[in-house]
Every structure is written in structure tokens, then in C-alpha cells.
Amino acid sequence: MRKYQPHIIKEGGVEFHLGEFRGGLVLYDFKKMLIYLDAKGKLLFGKKFKIYNEDHPILYKLFVYYIRDEASCKKLGIDLGKGLLLSGPVGCGKTSLMKLMRHLVPHQKPYELIPSRNIVFGFNNIGYRIIEQYGDHRFYCFDDLGVEPIGRHFGKDCNVLGEILLSRHELLLGHKVKTHATTNLNAKELEERYGNRVRSRMRELFNLVAFDKGSGDKRK
């Protein structure tokens, strides 16, 4: 039987050691995790993908959250019982990072990353069933939260993601089902988009991890 080795990930015949397995615990190494993330990013997004030095503070916060480093999370004010809201300017790399991070800990329950606008398009076609669909016990990351259009089904408007976030809040409280999201908007803009009630639930749903406002567009 193969020894349990959560700190070793194989990609294309290459073994990446993210740390050491000692005494039943993985002692992760930040630099080794960066090396793996860079390699995995190139596999997923092409050879032009790179890890930027200025993003290391953000990556460190994401790393300690995903590996469930309780001591480091406590120092950074990160609650492991909540999901992540990764915010920052357009093109700073939020979506790519959320796609990448789930590969760091393949032994943990994965989440599905879904564009928020696609959920609204689904609502426009099938109505309120789409809200029920995302009120299940699966883990999701809602991408580009806050810039999706208002939903409309049979002439009735609906703030679809706002309703889904309320459902996800109930799931977190009752069943510890976490939700993640990415957004280009700041706290004030999110409140304007979803209202104070949803915004207050979002504070309980998410840890806010924010890129600097001056982060450049990496897609250029």
C-alpha cells in the first residue's frame, strides 16, 4: 500500500515536494509551494504564466488558508470556518489563482468555479430552480461577483447572486458549507449592488483577501 503523502504532487511525471511529512503532519515550505504553483500555472494557462514577486503577500495568505495553518491564519485575522472573497482590479489574476489553489491540497474537498454571469443566464432560462441548485451542499467559487446583470424570468427581475448568497450563508451556519468568490468591486460597491442585508451576510461568509488597488493588468 502506498504511503499517504499529501505533500507530494505529481504533474507530467515530475514530483513536486511542497514540504516535509513529519509526525503525521505536513510542514509546508512557501518557496516550494510557489515553485509548484508556477509549474501548474504554466500547464493550465500556458508558458506566459508567471508568479509575480509583488503578489507573494497575497499568495502567502491564500496558502496558509488552504493548508489550514491555524497559527498563521490567526495572526493574519483569517477565519478557517469562512470562505474566501478575493478582490482586486481587473486582470490582477484573481480567477487564475482561485483555479490554481484548489490543486495545492488535492486531499481536501474541491470547489467548482463558476462565472456569476453564467448563473444569471441560467436563471433567465429556467427561473428560480437555479437558486435552489446553488443552495446545495457542494462547494462553489462565484467568479466576478457583482458585475453580473440582473436576472429576469417571465418579466420578473431578480438579484440572483444576492439570493444565492443568502442561501449560502444559511448553509455555512447550519452545515459548515463554505463559499468562495472573486470580485472587482470594493465593499461600498458590493453593498450598493446587493444591499445592506446581503453585505452583512457576506462579512460572515467570507474572509476578505485583497490585491492592492494599484495591481497591474497581467493580461497585457
Rank of each mutant, 00 (worst) to 15 (best):
N184S: 12
G13Y: 09
G23R: 12
D55L: 02
R2E: 15
G91M: 08
Y4K: 12
A187L: 14
K213C: 09
G81Q: 07
Y52S: 11
K10E: 15
E15Q: 14
L97S: 02
Y4E: 12
H7P: 08
R201P: 03
D157Q: 12
T95W: 04
I58Y: 02
Y194W: 09
C92D: 06
L18I: 07
V160T: 07
H56M: 11
K82A: 01
L104Q: 04
L80G: 06
R2Q: 15
H175A: 14
E170P: 01
E70N: 10
R193Y: 11
H153T: 05
R199I: 06
F211D: 03
E70G: 06
L76Q: 13
N125D: 13
V177C: 08
R2I: 12
L113Y: 01
T179E: 01
G216W: 08
K94H: 06
K94G: 04
A71H: 12
G13E: 09
C92T: 11
V26P: 05
Y4H: 12
G83I: 00
Y52M: 10
Y52I: 08
N184K: 07
N124S: 10
D143I: 04
L76H: 11
E163N: 11
K32I: 01
L104C: 05
H17E: 13
I119Q: 04
L165E: 02
D55R: 01
K218Q: 09
L76E: 15
L208N: 07
V160F: 07
L76P: 08
S116V: 02
K32Q: 13
L80H: 04
V177M: 07
K94C: 05
G93E: 02
N159P: 03
D38A: 15
M33I: 11
G162H: 04
Y140W: 05
L25G: 04
L59M: 13
G122V: 08
K3A: 13
G13K: 10
L166V: 10
E148C: 06
V198P: 03
E20C: 10
G13T: 07
L59Y: 10
N196M: 15
N124Q: 14
F21M: 13
M98W: 01
Y111F: 15
K82F: 04
T95C: 06
I78A: 05
D69H: 09
G77M: 08
N196D: 15
L59R: 02
M1I: 10
D136I: 04
K178E: 00
L44K: 14
C73V: 03
F206S: 00
G216I: 11
L76N: 10
L27W: 09
P110C: 01
K188T: 12
D69I: 02
F142Y: 11
E15V: 02
K32A: 08
V177Y: 03
R2M: 14
E148L: 10
P89K: 06
G83S: 02
R203Y: 13
G146D: 03
G146A: 08
F123S: 00
D217Y: 11
Q5L: 14
F16H: 15
D55G: 01
K213P: 14
L62M: 09
V14Q: 15
F30S: 01
Y60W: 11
F16I: 04
K220V: 15
G91W: 10
H137I: 09
L84W: 01
V105G: 05
Q5A: 13
K47W: 05
I78C: 05
T179G: 00
E191K: 15
D79L: 04
S116A: 15
V64P: 03
G77V: 07
E54Q: 15
N159H: 09
